[in-house]
Design a protein around this nucleic acid. Structure first.
Lengths: 151, 151
DNA sequence: GCGGTCATGGATATAATCGACCGCAAAATC
DNA sequence: GATTTTGCGGTCGATTATATCCATGACCGC
C-alpha cells in the first residue's frame, strides 16, 4: 500500500470505469501493472468492491434520516444485527459512544416510511426509545448504494 | 425507471464490474439493451457514478466519528459549505433538524485526528459548540469513498 | 396505419487479461 | 565485502473478453 496504490484508489473512487491504460497514464505505469495492483488491492481487501452511486430521488427515496436508538434491555443483539443487515432501508448502522446504543442512517420514501420503520423495529422487540433526525439538505452527500431487498 | 432499471442498478451496486451480458442474463435482456439502459440511467443522473468502496483500515483511517456542530452565529454559511465540501476528512455533512445545525461523518487516523479536525474548524471561525460521537463498531457499514485530497 | 420507443444481433473498436521475459534490491552465501 | 540467488514488480506483445455502434425489426399508443 504505497502512494501509487492510494492514487489508484482515489482515481477509481472518482470514476471506476476509467480504463487501465488511462489510469496507467496518470500514475506512470503500464496498464498491466495497474491491473496487477488493482487485483492485489482487491484480494487483500483494501478495495472492498466496485459499485454505483445512485440518486435516491430517482429511486423514490427522497428522505434521508438518522435514527438513534436505545436497544431494549435484554434484547437479542445478534438478532438485531442480522435484522439491521438485512433491512433494505438501513444504509448504515453503527454501535456508538454516548447515551444511545446505535445510530442508523436510513433512506425512505416519505415521512410515513419513517413511522413504519420505527413501528417495525418496535414490533420486533428491539426498540424502547429512539430519536429521529431528518436531513434537510446535504452539503456533502455520501454515496447511495441500493440494497438488494430494496428493488 | 422501471423495475428492470432498478434491478440493473441493484446488480451494479453489488458489483459494478459485472459484464453487460452477465447482467443481461439476470434481467433477460440482451447486452446491448442493458448497455443502452445504463447509458440512459447515467445521463439522466439516476446513476451518479461508478466508484470503489475502500477499506478505511487499509488506508490508515480506522476511526469513524459523527460530529454535531452548531454553526457560529453570523458564520458565513456558504464558506462553511465549500470548506466542508473540500475537507478530505468529511465524508458526509448534512443540515439537519433538531438542536444542532449540521451532522458530519468523518474518517480520521486517530483520536488526535478528531481534535485536530475540531481545532481546524474552530480556527476557521465556524464552530461554537460541538459534540462528537465515535463509532465503536459497524453493524452495517456504508461504503468508504476515498476523497481526492486524502491521497 | 404511423411515429416513437426500445430490443435484437452482428460487426467493430476498445479494453482487460495472460504469459514470457527483464531488472532491481534484499537476503544469503562464499 | 563481493557475489550469487531469489522474489517482487515491472514492461511488452498476443490473446481473449467486453463494450460500443449500427441497421433492422417488434411493439405500443395515438
Amino acid at each position: 500500500m504505497d502512494i501509487i496504490d492510494r492514487k489508484i484508489i482515489s482515481l477509481l473512487a472518482q470514476d471506476a470505469r476509467r480504463s487501465l491504460s488511462d489510469i496507467g497514464g496518470a500514475v506512470e505505469l503500464s496498464a498491466s501493472a495497474v491491473n496487477e495492483r488493482i487485483r492485489r488491492l482487491t484480494t487483500s481487501g483494501a478495495i472492498r468492491r466496485t459499485t454505483v452511486d445512485a440518486d435516491p430521488q430517482a429511486l423514490d427515496l427522497p428522505i434521508l434520516a438518522f435514527v438513534w436508538i436505545a436497544l431494549a434491555p435484554g434484547a437479542d443483539e445478534a438478532a438485531f444485527r442480522s435484522y439491521a443487515a438485512a433491512h433494505p432501508s438501513i444504509a448504515e448502522c453503527h454501535h456508538v459512544t454516548g447515551p444511545w446504543s446505535y445510530l442508523m442512517k436510513i433512506h425512505v420514501g416519505s415521512l410515513a416510511g419513517i413511522e413504519a420503520f420505527l413501528a417495525d423495529m418496535k414490533e420486533h422487540g428491539f426498540l424502547v426509545r429512539s430519536e429521529t433526525i431528518i436531513a434537510l439538505s446535504s452539503v456533502v452527500d455520501g454515496p447511495f448504494i441500493l440494497k438488494e431487498g430494496m428493488v
